[in-house]
Nucleic acid binder design. Structure first.
Length: 612
RNA sequence: GCCGAUGUAGCUCAGUGGUAGAGCACUCGAUUCGUAAUCGAGCGGUCAGGGGUUCAAAUCCCCUCAUCGGCUCCA
């Protein structure tokens, strides 16, 4: 009875001894282990590939990596050889010795071994002395440490080399591409096993896998990469989310609008997007070569703001009209780099829950706070608690932004004030701003611990300027409004990807594409089941009947695999009693409940975002 | 876009130079069944696509496409 958990999901079994995994950022010891392991790996690599040059090799949350410049590309087989070599080094119990040297001394030693990357790294190290860490007397690298005292403290069975990747020197794609080896190292082999188990579990939650299994969305090579298509079940999920937010927005004074999927190039020239993102748009549609030459054509929209701005501009606005909140579930297309695409989290066609608020400067703070409140409300309703707010400000050293310093100051201050007023925990993201303004971004992690932006609020003084927006103030003067761009979900695609992983496919009742499935014990009970389901659908309950004609056990199994929250067995007893035998995914069998009561409770639970 | 890996039936996968396989799904037949898989039969593949090597290619080589892990980018 206790085990209602399906055996193909990943829940931790209570009888398995729990291994606690330390975090690198919180464990000095683990930092030392990973630092030292990365040095051992680098030494092993240079032993096997003498031409390989060593660059940088830090610890990361789940392990470490090291970047090499090697004329011969590493292969998966090489990883095995490197791992073997590492074990050898570890068994030799080499002491790890810290040495302090002067800048000049470091320089001459680097020149002696001819490692130009190290020279660049040396230039970056501020202050003296320079620290060098030696492994025995055969290998050393510039390193701030700290390290273990000896390779003897490492356990080869707690170390694994995980993957190969390309990585640009200094993260700059115009510079040399290096080869990165990712590895992981733990205090004990048990920790490594646990780490691997968690990784497996994460893969089971992967929305690409679950989306396929649950039949929510599909891709097609013929349609094209990064262009998801939503199945009937996925579409139910999507529209439930849409309906929820639409309702919430209407309550908050948003006005719905609809705008086209394409617009003239000139529109995007005015906004500045064309100059900035031309290559990231699907190619222009132009009627003939001459039109093409003059850039007199149309492009698929990659954002909705310029369209909403045109609606704003369609009439003379009074201060009495503001704030004007124009909202649209707008589908946009971005020609993302092929290597960037993945599942639903990064796609080429997606729908933003977009809105643009046109406000007076005096209204800015208040409206901004209201938007943050909406986002928090939405995240709460979705049970997304594991997010971090990021202040995405401009990097003053870069010149990829439009607008004057004054506008930027004002915008960034408005965001700063908002998070302070709310006491919202946040972190800084310098250089993460949009080109027209700073943002407050709500960041979440997927199952594989990659960070994604969902909700966003942006303050913008620049587009109102570029489009020459105005309103008539109380004194009759023409004033410029401020714009707030905002999207609580960010995009429906990404949100759903994240939600699938967050819930591991077990959607809460109100979101579940199918809320209840009726299972007729024999085919003779089908008409009864169909009637009950139809009555439930009339109450806006997403009910369906298992028409397979399978045996009950099989139907239950299928419903469990489909992660349907509620099952109802209908047989002679139920027809007789005008009741339903209820089995929930969360709590197992609940026994017989009269049909009217089931319907009523279901409808109430759905309305309250609660369980049955 | 770059580095690396992968691509066999709708799905999950086996098959390393000699006649394409399994389980599930699907269709049909039998069974009419009470809380996680009834039995049997059948259907289903240009082995991602194209080119090459070979007497012979899913298997070896080249190109393209897609997917995955990273990097870069992300309005």
């Amino acid at each position: 009875m206790s085990n209602v958990v399906s055996n193909n999901t990943s829940e931790v079994q209570s009888d398995v001894k729990k291994v606690v995994l330390p975090k690198t950022s919180e464990s000095e010891h683990l930092k030392r282990i990973r630092h030292t392991t990365s040095h051992v790996m680098a030494m092993a690599v240079q032993k096997l590939f003498p031409k390989a040059q060593v660059t940088i090799g830090p610890w990361i949350e789940n392990g470490f990596y090291y970047d090499f410049d090697s004329p011969e590309p590493f292969t998966e087989k090489d990883l095995k050889a490197i791992k073997k070599e590492m074990a050898k080094i570890i068994r030799r119990k080499l002491p790890v010795v810290r040495e302090e040297v002067s800048r000049d001394e470091a320089k001459s030693r680097i020149q002696a071994i001819n490692e130009p990357y190290k020279l660049e790294i040396l230039d970056d190290i501020k202050g003296d002395p320079i620290t060098i860490y030696h492994l025995g007397d055969e290998w050393w690298d510039l390193c701030a440490g700290p390290h273990l005292e000896s390779t003897a403290e490492l356990n080869p069975d707690a170390i694994a080399l995980e993957s190969l990747a390309g990585a640009y020197w200094r993260g700059d794609e115009t510079k040399a591409q290096l080869q990165r080896i990712y590895g992981t190292a733990w205090e004990t082999p048990e920790q490594l096993t646990e780490y691997r188990r968690r990784k497996e579990e994460a893969i089971r939650r992967d929305h690409r896998k679950l989306g396929k299994e649950l039949g929510l969305f599909v891709f097609s090579d013929l349609v094209g990469p990064g262009l998801p298509m939503w199945t009937p079940k996925g579409t139910l999920l999507r529209s439930t989310l849409e309906d929820y937010l639409k309702q919430e927005q209407i309550r908050r004074g948003y006005l719905p609008v609809v705008t086209p999927h394409i617009g003239r190039v000139d529109l995007f020239k005015t906004s500045g997007h064309w100059q900035k993102y031309r290559d990231d748009l699907f190619p222009m549609m132009a009627d003939g070569d001459e039109a093409r030459q003059h850039e007199d054509g149309f492009v698929l929209k990659a954002m909705n703001c310029p369209f909403h701005v045109q609606i704003y501009k369609s009439e003379l606005r009074s201060y009495r009209d503001l704030p004007l909140r124009l909202a649209e579930f707008g589908t946009v297309y971005r020609y993302e780099q092929s290597g960037e695409l993945g599942g639903l989290t990064r796609v080429r066609g997606f729908t933003q829950d977009d809105a643009h608020l046109f406000v007076t400067p005096e209204q800015l703070d208040d409206e901004f706070l209201k938007v943050v409140d909406l986002i928090q409300t939405v995240f709460h309703a979705l049970n997304l608690t594991n997010f971090k707010a990021r202040l995405s400000f401009r990097d003053p050293d870069l010149d990829k932004y439009i607008g004057g310093d004054d506008a930027w100051e004002k915008s960034q201050n408005a965001i700063q004030r908002a998070v302070e007023t709310l006491g919202l925990p946040h972190f800084m993201g310098i250089g993460e701003a949009a080109f027209y303004g700073p943002k407050l971004d709500f960041m979440v992690q997927d199952a594989l611990e990659r960070e994604w932006q969902l909700g966003t609020v942006q303050v913008d003084y620049n587009l109102p300027e570029r489009f020459d927006l105005e309103y008539v103030a109380e004194d009759g003067s023409r004033q410029r409004p401020v714009m707030i761009h905002r999207a609580p979900f960010g995009s429906l695609e990404r949100l759903i990807g994240i939600l699938i992983e967050e819930y591991a496919g077990d959607f809460p009742l109100w979101l579940a594409p199918v809320q209840i499935r009726l299972l007729p014990v024999t085919e003779s009970h089908l008409p009864f089941a169909r009637q009950v389901a139809a009555d439930m659908r009339a109450q806006n309950i997403r009910a369906e009947v298992d028409e397979s004609g399978e045996r009950l056990g099989k139907m239950i199994r299928n419903a469990e695999k489909a992660k349907i929250p509620i099952m109802s067995v209908v047989g002679d007893k139920e027809v007789e009693a005008q009741a339903l035998s209820i089995r929930t995914r969360a709590s197992g069998e609940l026994g017989q409940i009269p049909i009217a009561e089931v319907t009523e409770r279901l409808a109430a639970a759905i309305a309250n975002f609660s369980n049955f």
